[in-house]
Amino acid sequence: MGSVVFSIDAELGWGFHDYSNPPTDRIESARPGWKTLLEIFETYNVPATWAVVGHLLLEDCNGIHADHPAVDGWFARERGAWRDRRDLRFGPDLVEAIAEADAGHEIGCHSFSHVLFDDPRTTRDIARAELETAIEVARTFDIEYESFVFPRNAVGHRELLAETGFSCYRGAADPPESRLRRPLEKLLATIDPQRVELVEPTVDKHGLVDVPPSLFCFRFEGMPRAVVETLAEDPIVRQAKHAIDRASRTDGVFHAWLHPNNLQAERDARRMESIIAYAAEKQATSDLRIETMADVAERAQ
């Protein structure tokens, strides 16, 4: 009996605050995309792991974060260009909506301010501050974290996750060899349903459960997507359905992930609704489970 897991990198502006030229279209789509995605999950009563940047749980701050040992300039955009963009910096209302939803979502951690854990500048002190500050803020919402999603899937300092009480994390998104494929090979891998793998959670040397991803739901965009969609079903939907079918017949895990800011147009919402609705249908007609990352970790330990 297999399972399906959805994990969501919930960031608002924090996913791009360190960019010299942040992508405006995705940033402005983050809040409405969050609400749309939550509504879709609720419609089909499907739970997900929402990995939330800890700063979003704050009601307010001065942007200085004097107790945080961040590298120089890390919070500069919050204090400068986005000083008056509270909608990008704070989101307690959105987190409360997740907590109050009927589907039984898990609220996981996506660090406090989207620090990259594999960056050489990210010292143990910085990584620890990211974890401990996020945990402290979450407790004001009565949230106790179990799952962690590394910002930009940059895995590092896993020992600190274990020391601060996490039980699992989403592992690296792409194997190293995937970056060596030629363009045609990458295109074939993207549109071939057989290329999406079911994954097996494993316990690492720190006692943490690695719940690796199977599919990024928005890896096939732009002109290639537009061309293929005129000829056939959305290739990502086709891949997801194929993987869900396999999970319903085997013991594997299909782990799909995305950001709310990926929902920039109606067709993006349709993609996610098609996938989520199909998972719900298979759960109702087979032994398939739909789980959170924490659920998977509990079974794997």
Rank of each mutant, 00 (worst) to 15 (best):
V52M: 13
L188P: 00
A48G: 05
D93Y: 06
W74C: 08
S167G: 14
T140H: 05
E159A: 13
P22L: 00
R31G: 01
S20G: 01
R182L: 12
T122V: 09
A240C: 14
D60T: 11
P92L: 02
D125T: 14
A48I: 10
E233H: 07
D268N: 12
W257Y: 12
E39T: 15
R238W: 09
D295S: 13
C61V: 07
R77T: 12
I64E: 13
V296E: 03
P120D: 07
E146M: 07
E200W: 02
R238A: 15
A279F: 04
F218C: 01
A173M: 11
P23C: 04
D25K: 08
E132L: 08
R128N: 01
L187P: 00
V149L: 12
D93Q: 07
Q264W: 01
G80W: 06
E159S: 10
D93T: 09
V46Y: 07
F16M: 11
R152Q: 12
I236W: 12
I276V: 15
S147D: 00
F112Y: 14
M272K: 04
M1P: 09
Q301C: 04
S111P: 03
D87Y: 10
L187G: 02
D60G: 00
Y44D: 01
A129Y: 06
E273H: 03
F75V: 05
A97W: 04
W50N: 03
I276R: 10
F75P: 03
E78Q: 15
E281T: 10
P260Y: 08
H105C: 03
S7H: 13
A284G: 07
L188Y: 11
V199W: 10
E159M: 03
A66C: 06
A99N: 05
R86Q: 13
E273G: 01
V52K: 14
A189K: 06
A232I: 14
C109D: 06
A76W: 09
H105E: 00
E39K: 15
S111Y: 09
I64M: 14
D210G: 03
E221H: 00
I64C: 09
D192H: 11
Q283V: 06
W50L: 01
E298P: 00
E177L: 07
R299W: 08
V227F: 11
G156K: 12
D84R: 06
G222K: 10
D93E: 15
A103R: 11
P22F: 01
P120L: 13
V209C: 14
I135D: 11
L198P: 00
V149D: 03
A162P: 02
R152T: 01
L231T: 02
I98E: 02
D67G: 03
F112W: 09
V149Q: 04
T122M: 10
F218N: 04
K282L: 13
L12N: 11
I135A: 10
S29L: 00
L161N: 04
S178K: 12
R86E: 10
W257N: 04
N262P: 01
V253W: 00
Q283L: 05
L37R: 05
I244F: 12
W74F: 15
T202M: 01
L258K: 01
T43G: 01
I98R: 10
G54F: 06
P176V: 08
D210N: 15
V228G: 08
L231F: 14
E106M: 04
W14I: 04
I290Y: 01
G91M: 12
I126G: 02
P183E: 13
E281D: 09
V53Q: 06
D245Q: 08
V115R: 15
G2T: 05
D9V: 07
R271V: 08
G15Q: 07
D118P: 11
